[in-house]
Simulated assay, not measured.
Amino acid sequence: MVTGANQGLGRAVVAGLARAWGTRDIVYLTGRNRQRVEAAAAALAGDGLPVMPEVCDVRNDGEVRALARRIADRHGGVDFVDSNAAAGISPGVAYATQVGDLIDTNNLGTTAMIRSFGPLLRPGGRFVVTASDFGTLAGLPAHLHARFDTETMSIDDLDKTMLEYAAAVCSGAAAAQGWPDWINIASKIGQVAAVRIYARDRREQARQAGQLIVAVCPGLVDTRASRPWFTDMSKAQSPDAAAIDIVRLATSPVEPRMYGELVQHGRIRPWTGTALR
């Protein structure tokens, strides 16, 4: 299943999975607006790619848990999850008015998916969080690194950190605390931190079950959300091109070296922000 999938990258991932798996598997296309979700599913069906539409607002923990129960009842488990839902932010609009939805969607939505769908992951399954290359500690001053100590903190601790960050933005205290000016940076770091914590807690079970837990940086993608922030989109990928790496993670053999990491085009972007490997 893929969240945030009625448009852009999420829809392209759904299409790629449907092409790769055909009628052997059910691919769930989810989003928070029923009309847009059903329209996207109908359009893909018209292209010969039948998918299953489901409404799921990741900001609503109850909705996430309810969908997880329905999928568990229908199928017993899930083979692939792409936690892709992301809130767009707009230049020229005060961050204090945007940060709440950003954190609720990107961060609390990611951890809600981990809590509800992580236990449903079958042997050999893959849990992917779509993030970005901003999701490393290189984007933070050193004194804030302890806020994302993924070796010791829990998912609940991380949620608290992200809520405290949002409150600092709203109160005007974030700059004095040293947070980056662009709120997307802290959000992406929080998403990758969630993957690292979840992967740490599941490491032994995942190893035995042949599962992969990973964050993915697709690179610059030409979408409605990214266009306002970049004056030159000539080097941006189309959603279909960017989806290839994510579909490959779903359909290719698991690469243990990627476990718990942020991966871009098959290469690991280290958490500390040092050289790629």
Results as ranks from 00 to 15, higher is better:
6 N>I: 01
6 N>M: 00
9 L>I: 03
11 R>N: 08
13 V>T: 12
22 G>K: 02
26 I>C: 07
36 R>D: 13
40 A>Y: 07
45 A>D: 13
48 G>C: 10
48 G>P: 11
49 L>G: 04
52 M>Q: 14
53 P>E: 08
57 D>M: 04
59 R>G: 14
62 G>P: 10
62 G>Q: 13
65 R>V: 09
67 L>P: 09
67 L>V: 02
67 L>Y: 08
76 G>E: 02
79 D>N: 10
81 V>C: 05
81 V>P: 06
86 A>H: 05
87 A>T: 08
90 S>T: 15
91 P>G: 02
92 G>I: 00
94 A>K: 12
97 T>Q: 15
98 Q>G: 05
99 V>Y: 08
104 D>R: 14
106 N>S: 05
111 T>G: 04
113 M>Y: 06
114 I>H: 13
117 F>E: 06
120 L>D: 11
120 L>A: 06
123 P>N: 08
128 V>W: 03
129 V>Y: 09
130 T>Y: 09
132 S>V: 02
135 G>F: 02
135 G>I: 01
142 A>I: 05
143 H>G: 05
143 H>C: 00
145 H>Y: 04
148 F>G: 11
150 T>R: 13
151 E>W: 12
156 D>F: 05
158 L>R: 01
158 L>M: 04
159 D>S: 04
159 D>L: 00
164 E>F: 11
168 A>G: 03
173 A>F: 03
176 A>S: 15
176 A>R: 14
177 Q>I: 04
178 G>K: 10
182 W>G: 13
188 K>R: 04
188 K>P: 09
188 K>V: 03
189 I>N: 05
189 I>K: 00
190 G>Y: 06
190 G>A: 09
192 V>N: 12
193 A>Q: 08
196 R>Y: 00
197 I>F: 01
200 R>N: 02
201 D>F: 04
203 R>P: 08
205 Q>P: 09
205 Q>I: 09
207 R>L: 07
211 Q>A: 00
216 V>D: 09
219 G>K: 01
219 G>A: 01
221 V>P: 08
222 D>L: 15
226 S>R: 03
230 F>E: 06
230 F>I: 05
230 F>A: 06
239 P>Q: 05
240 D>R: 04
243 A>Q: 01
245 D>K: 12
250 A>W: 07
252 S>Q: 15
252 S>F: 13
253 P>G: 10
255 E>D: 15
256 P>A: 02
257 R>N: 10
259 Y>P: 11
259 Y>V: 10
265 H>V: 06
268 I>H: 09
272 T>D: 15
272 T>P: 04
273 G>L: 01
276 L>Y: 14
277 R>E: 12
